[in-house]
Design a protein around this nucleic acid. Structure first.
Lengths: 194, 194
DNA sequence: GTCTATATTGTGATAGAC
DNA sequence: GTCTATCACAATATAGAC
């Protein structure tokens, strides 16, 4: 399996294109030909960098997860309150959706889960696991500092936050609404008292 | 476009199969051959009932929405409190997920939205619109009776409820968890005070 | 790294017999 | 309503030249 740090410029452009396509139409909705057209090269050139579609898919998710985790680490540094951290977290999803109403990459792949190659599925699980762990620790910190008094465990509350954000993006698409995700975030924060 | 009331026994079995397949692997993840194998007939027989895949998809969503709305009407009859109504509503999603961890049909199609035929998209929007309208009216009734004092508009709160349920199913799949949706529901109800 | 050419299989769809 | 046969095309993937 190709490692992320070894991505050549061409491979990077291919991963960029595949990422956008998956967010738009899903893993089963894009083809190597679509990627080739976006990048501006031919189909076999894609195979030169990523022999199988499953391998390309896995690398796309790995890079997405790595970038996401970097941003989460940055949020913890920049924002010192639970409220600020959660709002920055939600903004990541808003920013993603604002760009051509793209879904969270792993929201899309989570939905398609049963139709995905096993290695891609593994990477999706990893993304959700890391996000829930981050949310849990941030919420736990907020509880310790008295910034929130949740009526359920922080572990379960973390799942609500992530579910609401992923679901909010999905709803916005289904409804063709632009403000849908923002409204869900607004409701979520007023409900959990932030 | 074929009407729902005219569905012959064969057409019904085809729609059943297609519905399950879409919930499992999405619109772009199933083929007429898959449907044929599930039903136990040949591919061209499917085309006899549904000339195009887009037409089949639209009928699947129409029937799903109609059934869903019937159950919502029943819930309003049987449950007289906001709490009971919301819990029954959530149970619809739990029951769906419990069956082979199937996604909400329109949750899946909402995600795939940008890769769907326009007429299928239209039906998905209709499903979300009707669900949000039902939730809004149920929540509004609860406010009037003093069963809840939301810190945001009932319209926006309705979106949170639906987003959390759709997102909860998606999370459960991505995580390979069975209790994920139940936990999200638990957190949702404790957050909105029900 | 990229290309042309090709193999192989899958997919949505049609024609026409039973 | 269902079948066999077939079409046109798109998909993933490979071979080998440049």
């Amino acid at each position: 399996m190709k490692s992320l740090s070894e991505l050549t410029p061409s491979a990077t452009r291919i991963v960029d294109a595949a990422e956008g396509l998956i967010q738009a139409v899903g893993y089963n909705g894009f083809s190597y030909d679509d990627v080739a057209q976006v990048v501006g090269i031919r189909k076999p050139s894609i195979h030169h960098h990523f022999p199988t579609k499953a391998e390309l898919g896995a690398v796309v998710v790995q890079r997405y997860t790595q970038r996401f985790m970097n941003m989460l680490a940055e949020i913890v540094q920049l924002e010192l309150t639970l409220s600020g951290r959660l709002r920055s977290y939600a903004r990541l999803f808003e920013t993603t959706y604002a760009k051509d109403r793209r879904l969270c990459l792993c929201g899309m792949l989570g939905a398609e889960s049963d139709g995905l190659p096993p290695n891609v599925n593994q990477e999706v699980r990893d993304f959700f696991g890391k996000n829930l762990a981050w949310l849990k620790s941030v919420l736990q910190d907020g509880v310790k500092k008295g910034e929130i008094e949740p009526r359920c465990s922080v572990e379960v509350l973390a799942k609500l936050v992530l579910a609401a954000l992923e679901g909010g993006m999905l709803l916005g698409r289904g409804q063709e609404s632009k403000r849908g995700l923002q409204q869900v975030i607004e409701a979520l924060f007023s409900a959990i008292g932030k």
